[in-house]
């Protein structure tokens, strides 16, 4: 693995070296390294277009890293990763994709992740997307489908902080009784990048809850769209928040949709788009920062 690949690996999965636990590293369209553990089995799909991950029930405090790296220009791939998370397990899953493109051809990674959480399973899912290099387009279209069994919990932290030319994220989740879903999305777009996010959450079971929070910053002439739909089909709680900072000549669209199909469902949607408050800039300037430095600190904090 060269320096570019190592840097990408570090950026998307915070890994300085090959991790000790279960992992699968995909590089330039091919799975290059796979490691299973006693409790976590990773099986590459026959067609070479993804992996199946089986996590035994009661697996606690273990992690799975499945980074994807594309450092060659012109690679376009569609990958399916299926996660089967056993009863009462508690695991960390770190995914992410880094594309380095200095060539003339578009590079893209479309990752379809399907999560099946059994009763009482608990998952923290961290996903980072990054694009570098001044070449052709760097495209990522992640699809996440989540089936949450009774009392299961999933926290999904998804981050895309620059360099991705085009992304279209789709997340679908179905929650059974007492299941709990938390999604934290952070997006930064600049130049003429486009980032679209679509969430559909169905709260089917009694006392299920979902909290979807998106924070984003759109600079230059970039475009972002946020669409969320939360459906309540039982006594449940759903909260969706889109909080965006708009700068320069960027455009942001936020479309809320809440659909209550049960008299006991409580659904809330908040959407705020605005520029950085003048008083925030002034405050930081009174601490000695220039306007540009103040702006950077505010954005860094907002997306931290």
């Amino acid at each position: 693995m060269g320096t570019i690949e190592k840097d990408l690996l570090l950026a998307v999965s915070d890994l300085h070296q090959i991790p000790s636990g279960a992992f699968s590293i995909r590089e330039n369209g091919k799975g290059v390294q796979v490691n299973s553990t006693e409790n976590i089995q990773i099986i590459p799909k026959g067609e070479g277009n993804g992996i199946d991950i089986y996590i035994k029930e009661n697996t606690k405090n273990e992690s799975v890293h499945i980074p994807v790296i594309i450092s060659k220009s012109g690679i376009e791939e569609l990958v399916y990763n299926d996660f089967y998370i056993g009863k009462n397990s508690d695991v960390l899953i770190v995914a992410g994709c880094g594309i380095h493109n200095t060539g003339d051809s578009k590079s893209s990674h479309d990752g379809i992740h399907r999560f099946h959480l059994e009763e009482g399973a608990k998952v923290r899912y961290v996903e980072k997307h990054i694009g570098v290099g001044s070449g052709a387009e760097k495209v990522m279209n992640p699809v996440t489908e989540i089936e949450m069994g009774e009392r299961s919990e999933l926290t999904m932290e998804t981050t895309q902080l620059g360099g991705v030319s085009y992304s279209e994220r789709e997340t679908f989740a179905t929650l059974e009784k007492q299941a709990k879903l938390v999604i934290k999305e952070k997006i930064l777009t600049s130049e003429n990048q486009v980032a679209k996010s679509k969430f559909r959450v169905e709260l089917v079971g009694k006392d299920s809850s979902a909290d979807v929070v998106s924070r984003s910053v759109a600079r230059d002439e970039s475009y972002q769209s946020f669409f969320s739909s939360v459906v309540g089909r039982a006594e449940c709680f759903g909260h969706v928040e889109c909080d965006a900072i708009i700068m320069d000549k960027a455009k942001i669209s936020a479309t809320p949709e809440i659909l209550a199909e049960d008299v006991d469902s409580k659904l809330v949607h908040e959407a705020v788009v605005g520029k950085i408050a003048g008083e925030q800039l002034i405050k930081l300037m009174t601490l000695g920062l220039c306007e540009k430095e103040a702006e950077e600190l505010i954005i860094k904090g907002f997306l931290s």
């Binding site: 925030q280 002034i282 300037m285 009174t286 220039c290």
Partner: peptide, 23 residues
């Protein structure tokens, strides 16, 4: 400018402090 005055040695406490999300 405000920042130059700050660097020169003037500090200022706002009457109504500013809130920041994330900081």
């Amino acid at each position: 400018t405000i920042s130059d005055r700050a660097k020169l040695g003037i500090a200022y406490a706002f009457q109504t402090p500013v809130r920041f999300k994330g900081l």
